[in-house]
Design a protein around this nucleic acid. Structure first.
Lengths: 113, 113
DNA sequence: AGTTAATATTCGAACTTTCGAATATACCAC
DNA sequence: GTGGTATATTCGAAAGTTCGAATATTAACT
């Protein structure tokens, strides 16, 4: 029983364990957007976006609504936004690590100065 | 910049994206415990526990303190507990899915009735 | 120094995730 | 129905995660 609950929680975290999926959820903070708008705003491949959206749908983090040609996505439960908000505080509190990550990315990208 | 922040968040979620690691953090809710106590309470392999603890340490979710022979672990920031609390509400709100997961596990375990 | 207890690390096999390219499906307008 | 636009799915290669078995490290005790 505990095991099932933990598996459920782990699946939830796994669903958000990718920068693109976090970016998608953040885009949907103010309300629904079409798949096309999300793709355009994030500047990612269509297939890739669609795969990430499928994962977020499968874990019930997003819901979708079809309207003619398009599919509109939104966050199912406001608590998910709430969790991301707490994490923002958390990140500010540990900004030095965020900056370390930043530097690591910078280095990996071979941006010399 | 946004990218680094998202990578940092994704890493955080990734760190919690495993049932054993969630179980470890939950064990530490009331305060620090030795590695041995965690292993005993969860009934897992020593090497496996140590690997999961290493991941949680690397992502700065846990901190450790050596005392002689033993290593005591604790959750670094109470906001992590807070996030897990919100998730508990979230799970209660979506209990039907949790139950579906439970049934799936039950089935996979071949527990007939 | 030798032994035991507690914890960490390394290795390799099995499994899962990620990506873009290609293809499929669905809907609309003509 | 043909053509176009929006989105989803399938495939296979590359990269990442997970596990237990074996081994290493560290500290305490004799």
């Amino acid at each position: 029983m505990q095991d099932a609950l933990r598996q459920f929680k782990a699946d939830f975290f796994q669903a958000l364990a990718h920068p693109t999926r976090i970016a998608i959820v953040e885009q949907l903070r103010e309300g629904e957007l079409s798949a096309g708008t999300i793709i355009e705003r994030l500047g990612i491949e269509q297939a890739n976006a669609s795969q990430h959206l499928a994962i977020l749908r499968a874990k019930n983090i997003l819901v979708n609504r079809k309207a003619g040609n398009q599919v509109f996505y939104s966050v199912r439960d406001r608590r998910i936004i709430e969790i991301l908000d707490i994490m923002r505080q958390y990140f500010h509190a540990h900004m030095s690590e965020v900056l370390a990550t930043l530097r690591a990315i910078d280095k990996a990208g071979k941006v010399r100065r």
